[in-house]
Amino acid sequence: MIGKVKISQSQADAIEVYLLENDNDREEFINWFGINRKYRNSLNDNYKPLADLMYSDLARALLIGYEVEPEYKGGDWIAFEKVPGSGKVLVGVIEKVGIRSVDTDYLADNGYKQNFSMDRIRHATPEEIKAEKERRVWKSIGREVGQFKVGDAYRTTDGDWGAVISEQSKVMVERYYSSRKIAGLLPAESYVDFDEIVSFQGGDDE
């Protein structure tokens, strides 16, 4: 069975412009395209995106339907489903768009940036982007997402500050984080002991 044809967004826009300006006459559009495609270099700006479209593909688009292929550019956040159907995705920012794949800033465990096949990616959702940004923040301090430690200070979504003072309170704070009640974190690793600094410098100045 012949299905819908995939076309670019600019080609879809050109089709819509022609149909709008010509009373949605699809048969006339097909005839017009058959005559004018050979003069593709002289097509006006509205229809230039159609120059790379095959005659048979335009006919399919008009008579059966079409799907718009996502277009990607550098800086786009994309999601890659490593195992189709698993629902687990890797999220990164496109650094370079190739013919069949994209280079991204997503770092694998081996420290190398990842290249993803174009037919396996999609634009990431706002929720996926937010989750990935949080994952990167946690990774930057050497922790798994939501991993608190005794000695951490945290700020709640109400603006209050608290501290993780025991393993019991750590469990409680991690539950708060899972419930989206934690707005910020001051890691224990960032704590500065001024007594240690003075000792390292050789003691108090006399």
Rank of each mutant, 00 (worst) to 15 (best):
S140Q: 09
D76M: 03
A153Y: 12
Y112W: 13
G159A: 07
S117W: 10
L185A: 01
G98Q: 11
E174M: 05
M172N: 13
M172E: 13
K88Y: 05
E67K: 14
A61S: 03
V137S: 05
G65V: 03
V164P: 00
Y66N: 04
D57P: 02
S140P: 07
K38W: 05
Y176A: 09
K149S: 13
A14T: 07
K130L: 11
K73R: 14
L62K: 00
Y112E: 15
I7Y: 02
M118L: 15
V192D: 03
K181S: 04
D57M: 07
N24E: 15
K130H: 09
G92R: 02
D76S: 04
R26C: 14
V150R: 08
I99M: 15
D105K: 11
D57K: 11
N110E: 13
A188M: 08
E28N: 14
P49K: 03
G203K: 03
G92L: 04
L63F: 12
G142H: 12
F200Q: 10
K6E: 14
A188E: 15
Q168F: 09
M54G: 05
I197C: 00
I197R: 00
N36W: 04
G111M: 13
G184Q: 07
L50K: 02
L53W: 02
D23G: 01
R122N: 05
G92F: 06
Y154D: 09
R26G: 09
P126A: 06
G75S: 02
E134F: 05
R122L: 00
T157L: 06
S42R: 11
K48P: 02
I141F: 15
D105Q: 08
F29Q: 01
Y176W: 13
N115C: 14
L90I: 13
V164T: 04
R100A: 12
V68Q: 09
M1N: 10
A153V: 13
W161E: 11
Q9T: 10
I197S: 00
R143P: 04
I121R: 03
